[in-house]
């Protein structure tokens, strides 16, 4: 026996015509399955009606305030950790760049004692290398496109790293929520 559309009429909230109501009544008298479904649903609905809303234990709003404070603290600590991590990473990268550029002459004491002098030395060495490369290009013009591509790629990587660092710091210190954090 087909239970449609009777099941649909019984379980949906749509209003049906008088003729359909009569048809449903006749079907319910004949069909045990639909009859059971009908009364079972009525029973469930009745149980829904007697089940009142439940409420939390008293002090919910105070517990929420404590949780909000904890959430803020966690977020604050996370921001600090991330910014320290990024700063350390960037410093490490810069230090390694300097070390790699001047590996043979590098001295930790002179580096710590006179950072600006070392940086100056680094810059002058870069200029020196660039001049050397330039003279090399003059001697071998065919090597120019490959070397230029390598140089541009390196500069692009450094620029991207700098952009990423700046963007990360900006994002970390940008409040994400609707209200200002304390």
């Amino acid at each position: 026996m087909s239970h449609q559309p009777y099941e649909k009429w019984l379980l949906s909230e749509e209003v049906i015509s008088q003729q359909d109501k009569e048809s449903l009544k006749i079907h319910l008298q004949e069909c045990k399955s639909c009859q059971d479904l009908h009364y079972a649903w009525q029973a469930v609905e009745q149980e829904f009606a007697i089940n009142a809303q439940v409420e939390p234990q008293s002090g919910f709003d105070q517990r929420w305030e404590i949780r909000l404070e904890k959430t803020r603290e966690t977020r604050r600590q996370k921001r600090i950790t991330v910014s320290i991590g990024i700063t350390l990473g960037f410093s490490l990268l810069a230090t390694w760049s300097i070390l790699l550029a001047d590996l043979t002459n590098f001295s930790l004491s002179s580096f710590l004692g006179n950072l600006f002098a070392t940086l100056g030395q680094f810059v002058s060495r870069i200029i020196h290398i660039l001049r050397g490369v330039e003279s090399l290009f003059r001697a071998f013009p065919l090597a120019i496109p490959i070397s230029a591509a390598i140089g541009v790629s390196l500069m692009a990587v450094v620029t991207l790293l700098l952009a990423f660092w700046t963007a990360s710091l900006f994002k970390i210190y940008q409040p994400k929520q609707g209200v200002i954090l304390k």
């Binding site: 009429w9 949906s12 209003v15 009364y39 009525q42 009745q46």
Partner: peptide
């Protein structure tokens, strides 16, 4: 036994 109330369809 039959419940006192009917389905909205009825």
């Amino acid at each position: 036994e039959r419940r006192p109330h009917e389905s909205p369809a009825l």
